[in-house]
Computed example of a mutant assay.
Amino acid sequence: MKATGVFLLFSLALFCYQGIAEVDGAAGRGTEPACGNFNLNRGCTRIFEPVCGTDDVLYSNECLLCLQNMQRGTNVRIKNRGMCLKPSPRSAN
């Protein structure tokens, strides 16, 4: 019984640590958006699944980040999924 409890606690600690490490690691360089999953010529859906770009701009979804990259010729990556912790002044407009 004790071995099972120790194993469960160890598993939980490892799971939490991996989650923290991914967020910290992505903060510097970000992760590449999966732009190949979207037909950018047809536009993007209005589904709100926010992503924060490495430019600290909040995008409503990953497709819109890809569309902005294509239109502006930039390579903004995904800093984290969800709201930006420190939004840029451009996000407020």
Rank of each mutant, 00 (worst) to 15 (best):
L85T: 10
I78R: 03
G53R: 01
N39Y: 06
R81K: 05
Q71Y: 09
E32R: 12
C63G: 07
C63Y: 00
T45G: 14
A92K: 09
S60W: 08
L58S: 13
T4H: 14
G30N: 00
I47R: 08
S91Y: 04
F38D: 00
E32A: 06
N37H: 15
L67Q: 05
V51Q: 01
N75W: 04
C66I: 00
F10N: 09
N37A: 15
C63R: 03
I78G: 00
M70C: 13
L65F: 04
G43S: 01
K86V: 15
C16R: 10
T74W: 09
C44P: 00
E62N: 05
K79Q: 03
D55W: 03
S91A: 05
F15E: 10
E49T: 13
A27R: 09
C84G: 03
I20D: 11
G5R: 13
Q68R: 12
L58Q: 15
E22G: 08
A26Y: 12
G36A: 01
V51H: 01
R90F: 13
R42D: 14
F10Y: 13
P89L: 06
N80T: 07
K79R: 02
P89K: 07
A34N: 11
A92L: 06
A21K: 13
G19F: 06
P50T: 00
F15M: 13
L8P: 03
D56T: 07
L85V: 13
A92V: 07
L14Q: 12
A13I: 09
C44Y: 00
L14A: 15
G19P: 01
G30D: 00
E49S: 13
C35S: 01
P89T: 05
N37C: 12
N93C: 14
N75L: 08
